[in-house]
Nucleic acid binder design. Sequence first.
DNA 1: TAGGCCATCTGGTCCT
DNA 2: AGGACCAGATGGCCTA
Length: 241
Amino acid sequence: LRSAEPSGPGGAGMAELKSLSGDAYLALSHGYAAAAAAAAGLAYGAARGPEATRGYGTPGPGGELPATPAPRAPAAAAESSGEQSGDEDDAFEQQRRRRRGPGGAADGRRRPREQRSLRLSINARERRRMHDLNDALDGLRAVIPYAHSPSVRKLSKIATLLLAKNYILMQAQALDEMRRLVAYLNQGQGLAAPVAAAPLTHFGQAAVFPFSAGAALPCPDKCAAFSGTPSALCKHCNEKP
DNA sequence: TAGGCCATCTGGTCCT
DNA sequence: AGGACCAGATGGCCTA
């Protein structure tokens, strides 16, 4: 990815999604699910179901790929890959001539058949690479909090990336606020800041998140201003009103 | 039907 | 030399 902010075709959807990005999006910390659902509106593949969305079309019989059904196998692509059989070499050469022009010969010393098998293996590698990329995107979709449901469309690739970016920013902001809150509480209780803040200095220490989801009592202290969630570390949080 | 999204093929470039 | 990565081209499917 050479451009962090892709542009070009698909711009309409991008503009829509960009309206959710940055600070404006971060402001939606409580409405993340709704925002995600909005982003999911840019997604694709509702009618295909979770399995079909994989949609990796196999180029055709005889290839080195597993013989999974190819819901969207591009006819022309399969033909151009020469894996359909018959006049495969002719088709392959015609394709090359079309692309390279009359005099074009990038690999002139290779015999056509050898050349073609090399091309097929390169194609297969590229397919595998793209499948791995899609698997990684699926993994990312799985951990992004948006409406995962059969009735909700799968997030598009670009929507997945942008939503993930915003989610990370949102988490970082929440962590920052939590650090400030802990520092504030430590001041109020006369604790040595380095001791109490130590568990939070490591970015990955989400397990020490000091709020308990169970308690719902409003805190008379200022920690209630943070997300409205009572803090287990705050002595006021569990006080009876 | 146009536009969005996608998978695939392909050639070029860089790296090991 | 071979593999990984990238971007352009192409064509199919879906939705508004």
